[in-house]
Design a protein around this nucleic acid. Structure first.
Lengths: 144, 144
DNA sequence: AGTGAAAGATCCTTCTT
DNA sequence: AAGAAGGATCTTTCACT
């Protein structure tokens, strides 16, 4: 799937997406052209989907974070789905098997704001809100 | 908190973390030195924590993804916590309020692999596994 | 697949205003 | 915060292994 070189390239870019091709190449003991070619292929294959930035929500005033499980009432599924998409404080949402239909991550600046948002969904779905007390595991890559 | 310029800078870098300072500056109608200075401050303030890469787990063979809720049995909390950290297929884990103590994201290549991993936790915690059927919302930033 | 050299483009920072 | 500019740095092409 990925050979060892590819893995190292992905790891290095995951740690700092802004390093130059030249430095990337040096760190994995390849020439610049080779590293460039490998990077291009990783992008082409879709392994690397994007180069992006990790933002710390705390610094933007989002002091509260919650995981919200959402089970739409009969006939409300698509309306609930639309609502989740429209509320930008929801930053992630998965559709899952089991009793809960959706599991979403919510960032808010206060309990009041959280209450308001949950209320907007409340008449169209059963919700269960678990407030995040700590991040045991900060986002990482699965084994390459 | 962030002014409009900062917001645009963060947005642009979130979309492509590898653009040059020069291009970044041009896109927000600033000079390079100004853009450079703003970027430096965003990093210093901790707003931008890192420049990283978004990897598509599908392309690495991770065809299955699940959200696992984990409630350690009495006295097992720290052992469970350690176990989650040690299993690299867990890519995210939050400690939350409520009945479930942990909510984690799990990537696996097969149902068999999933079963094995859940079993390793099974004797130290109650678990509830919800398989991800679709990603309604792909990771995005909360409103800046 | 990969290397090394090299040319030409591009960039970042410093300085002045 | 802008603009100019110099010097550093980078990326890609090419010929070859």
């Amino acid at each position: 799937m990925l050979d060892d070189m590819d893995r190292r390239i992905v790891d290095l870019l995951a740690a700092n997406a802004r390093i130059s091709l030249k430095e990337l190449a040096a760190r994995v003991n390849l020439s610049s052209p080779s590293a460039s070619e490998r990077l291009r292929r990783l992008e082409d294959r879709g392994v690397i989907r994007a180069f992006t930035v990790e933002v710390e929500p705390q610094t933007l005033g989002y002091t509260l974070q919650a995981i919200v499980r959402i089970r739409p009432l009969p006939g409300q599924l698509s309306r609930v789905q639309k609502l989740i998409e429209e509320i930008p404080q929801f930053t992630e949402c998965d559709k899952v098997t089991g009793d809960d239909c959706f599991i979403a991550r919510l960032f808010v600046r206060s309990i009041t704001e959280m209450d308001e948002i949950i209320d907007r969904i409340g008449d169209k779905a059963e919700t269960n809100t678990a407030i995040v007390k700590a991040q045991l595991l900060k986002r990482r890559l699965p084994p390459l």
